[in-house]
Amino acid sequence: MLELKNIVKIYQGGTVNETCLFDGFSLSIPENQFVCVVGSNGSGKTSLLNIICGSVPIDEGQILVGGENITRMPEHRRHERIGRVYQDPARGTCPSMTILENMSMADNKGKPFNLLPCVNRKKTEEYRAMLAQLGLGLEDKMGVRVGNLSGGQRQAMALLMSTMTPIEFLILDEHTAALDPKTAEIIMQLTGRIVAQKKLTTIMVTHNLRYAVEYGDRVLMMHQGKTVFDRAGEEKRGVTTETLLGLFNEISVECGN
């Protein structure tokens, strides 16, 4: 169970440009739920993820995981149970290291980074099998530097790497937005498979309304730091892209766009 309680987040506080994004925002996500978050730019989707992961500090409120208060826990400590994939494929991998080296490093998450060798040759076959299921031909490029791969290939690797070790939460920040439609589809299917297999509590921010409808068991729409639409379980199944699109238009009209 992940709980956000009365979160207050002010950007550029104390200046004339002070903007209050969240003012008493609360959200709770039960275990194993796959939540899709949609909303226009600036609605607070990415800020929400950054607050959960500890990438940005909050001004007031509490963040609880399974009842434990993690509000003051630094970002890297929170990642002990969080896997995260970013919109920019370059952020999830090391460009100057090879595929095998990247996979080996990700596999070591949660264990000490000590003076033992990082690459374990015995595991190469295991990694190869994991890469083969992507269908991108990466299994034959174990010695290639990741910087030489395409965005889609890197993003597929980032997704694999972030979910290799036991984690509880998967945070996806528009992770298909920088990809071509076909690659995005492959990455989305892989995401669905991994989440189901590993039973991860997942929060996915997306601009693709179809993905928000097809995947997950809860959909949230955010607007100006508030949840304006929230459907889960049975109710979520009735939600269509038209519902979401209609809601988007309604909001835009209200805002005078």
Partner: peptide, 18 residues
Amino acid sequence: FLLRATGDNETLVATLAK
């Protein structure tokens, strides 16, 4: 490896919980 990753991509190091 972690040293090389830090020069390359600090974000990844944080996601590796380091």
